[in-house]
Design a protein around this nucleic acid. Sequence first.
DNA 1: GTACGTGCAAATGATTTGCGTTAAG
DNA 2: CTTAACGCAAATCATTTGCACGTAC
Lengths: 128, 128
Amino acid sequence: MKMTNQRLEILNFLSQSAEHPSTEEIYNAVKQKLSRISKATVYNNLKFLIKHDIVKMVNIKGVSRFETQIRSHHHIICKKCSKIEDFESESLNQFAIDLIRGKTNFKIEQTSMNFLGLCEKCAAKSIR
Amino acid sequence: MKMTNQRLEILNFLSQSAEHPSTEEIYNAVKQKLSRISKATVYNNLKFLIKHDIVKMVNIKGVSRFETQIRSHHHIICKKCSKIEDFESESLNQFAIDLIRGKTNFKIEQTSMNFLGLCEKCAAKSIR
DNA sequence: GTACGTGCAAATGATTTGCGTTAAG
DNA sequence: CTTAACGCAAATCATTTGCACGTAC
């Protein structure tokens, strides 16, 4: 793997970010450090990092958002404000994988669970 | 709810389709019956049907795909060929929901799990 | 009759591509 | 050196929007 400044800064930004930034947000952030970086480079690198299982992508309302793949975890997403909360449970993963094995011939490599609903704030607001 | 021919045909096509067609595919199929239908109408109706929990959307490699919301089920997706297999398990849903309740204040309304890996065919091919 | 849905064409936004240049290993 | 990565601009693709007209209720 060839390591470039651009790749490093993207990864650096992603690993420090608790949010799940979009391509646009990543581009703007990295631009602070590498003013000449292009969007194509951001796209290329995100694709590269995903292929190498370093970064993970979630699609929320048609927008791609990214995060570093630290450990397998899942997302709890607010339907209204798009806020994402991370959620991790090894037992849930194991439960799911055990269940699937035998039922299908797919070779499962990765699980991605999204739970959709309302966050505390939006739930409070919607009681009219 | 106002029911139109366009809406009916889209729904009709989706409920007969075992695949998970994209907007483009839905448009082409419905065009056979309603030759004057526009893409905007397809988009509008899909959005409408999702809002009313009649249709569900999955995003695979940046492309939106749709299916009728018969029962809550999950997807097993091939990373290579994008083939989608449906997978249903009430006990898995229950396990996940029970686990989350208490850990977070989100009000979960819907669960969506995607399992990524290789289908039988692609797995066989990749043994080089 | 009226609000909502439709078809069309143009606009927008995200992502990809082609290509000449640059830099990592 | 050589190959992968970069930056830029143009191209493509999915989706949205504005608007005049049509139709379900």
